[in-house]
Design a protein around this nucleic acid. Structure first.
Lengths: 148, 148
DNA sequence: CTCAGTGCAAAGGATTTGCATGCCG
DNA sequence: CGGCATGCAAATCCTTTGCACTGAG
């Protein structure tokens, strides 16, 4: 999906949710698309300082409800957000334990398929209805390793 | 590992970290062992109301540093803790999007091995040093499904 | 005895919300 | 025009911390 595809799709999803796609929300989506991985609120403010913090929080909630963005939880104290997977592509996160940075990566299709099937099986066995999975890899990024 | 194995191991790990294994810390470890999955601070207080909140927070930090417990991050606003995997066994989490409850589950060894290898490969390709992975399944638990 | 651990209450910090104003439809 | 979106500032709520007290070694 290209930048404007996401933009268009966001407009459709928001309309479906009876929400407007305002300038501020467009800028927010643009900022998230520009990142290499999920961004914190601070990252977003840094990327576009015309956006006040409270509006970012408020609009992220709206965009999340409309399935345009997704909240990503990592181990540091800041919530992170990214464009929803169905507007981009299924992927996972490399989380650096040293600097807290998060980078996207993907598994090969074969492994992903095997995993997905095993997960559905396991969920079923536990009387659980699986919707999606989140797989994070914890480690040290190249930058932090060379610094240590 | 049995209950007392974990207890003994916790004592060793704390000693190694120059920390005492006090009554409060024992009760904390016991409460975590009793849970079916990672517990929130509120869960712990509910399980053992002799433990004051502030001591729970403080001791969880100590126990985490000593590698006795691990912090588990989910999508709700509460931190959760569990006994460290090396004292129990490698497992994953089923997270209910409706009630926020978290339940442990495991993948079969074969799938886990495949996954682990694919992850190391992917991490390596990204110049990342992988240490561990965290895989969560998001969905709806049996209880919540029957209620809706 | 001495110092780490404890418990209460007060502080901290990310996130949320009330309210007056501005702008979209 | 009417209502949703915005922005500021104040409020919330999980979590952390200061301080005086207790207990382990």
């Amino acid at each position: 999906m290209t930048f404007s595809d996401v933009d268009n799709e966001a407009a459709v999803l928001l309309k479906k949710a009876n929400q407007r796609y305002t300038e501020g929300r467009r800028r927010l989506v643009a900022a998230l698309q520009a990142g290499k991985g999920p961004l914190t609120i601070a990252d977003i403010v840094a990327a576009d300082d015309t956006l006040p913090q409270s509006s970012i929080y408020r609009n992220l909630v709206i965009l999340e409800e409309a399935n345009v963005v997704a909240r990503v939880v990592t181990s540091d104290d800041f919530a992170r957000y990214e464009i929803a997977e169905h507007l981009t592509h299924h992927h996972h996160h490399l989380i650096c334990k040293a600097c807290g940075d998060v980078i996207d990566f993907a598994l090969d299709a074969q492994t992903e398929a095997t995993l997905d099937q095993a997960l559905h099986q396991a969920a079923h066995d536990a009387g659980f209805t699986a919707e999606s999975h989140q797989l994070d890899l914890l480690g040290t990024c190249g930058d932090c390793r060379s610094e240590s």
